[in-house]
Amino acid sequence: MKKSSSATEQTLKKMNWFDKLAHPGQFLKWSKYLVLPLTIITILLFTIGLWFAFFNSPEDYQMGDTVRIMYVHVPNAWLSQFTYMAMAVSAIGTLVWRHPIADVSMKVAAPLGAAFTAIALFTGSLWGRPTWGTFWEWDGRMTATLILLFMYLGLIALWKSFDDQLRAAKLIAVLTLVGAVNIPIIKFSVDWWNTLHQSSSISPSGIAMPPSIYIPLFVMMFAFTFLFITLHIVGMRTEILRRKADALERKSLNQNEKRG
């Protein structure tokens, strides 16, 4: 037993710093110290951001108080794309470096991305009702976000339909990258289609924002981004532990079979 553990130490010594950081066991060790600070930063950012959003920001002269919905809508719209980016980078990690930590990162990011995208759509439609007069508009941005949500949900469904998670990771990585290549095309086609059929809808993006709106918006952007990072790291730790437990259970089953 001692021999094998020293063997792992030996292999660890041979690895470069990146492989060391990304080794699942090592990841569990060093990420442990990140969870608490990240949680505290997230809570602080949300406290400051929400305080600004509700008590220290004026109503917009064009949109009125509904501008406050923007403070949760825009960060989630940003995260819906950022999470896909993180997933695509992890997919490259899975395919090029064959790294288990990239598999785990990809798998944990999918439900988070779906949740942020759903929030972006929900808040967008509640923002749209008072400003556009309708909950749903076939506007380029909203439609593209809806398609993105379908892509996330499809990826989650695919993760669930594979038993062998190692095989799943490689195949899903291929699909994630195919999706990443297609996202700009989808965005372009939907925008193009929308301008073809446009009646006249006001896009909130065209409105110049005063700094009093920028401050809460940026704080909230950071707050939600840190929420994502925190949940992602905790989720990755959990997924590594789950795989460990699965492997151990399989091992003990095999041993029992041999004995029986």
């Binding site: 009125g64 509904t66 929030i119 929900f122 808040t123 923002w127």
Partner: peptide, 18 residues
Amino acid sequence: LGPHANFIIAAYIGVLIV
């Protein structure tokens, strides 16, 4: 929260739940 308070509150409650 002005005339659209319901929308704002509903949005934040939705975010909170998710």
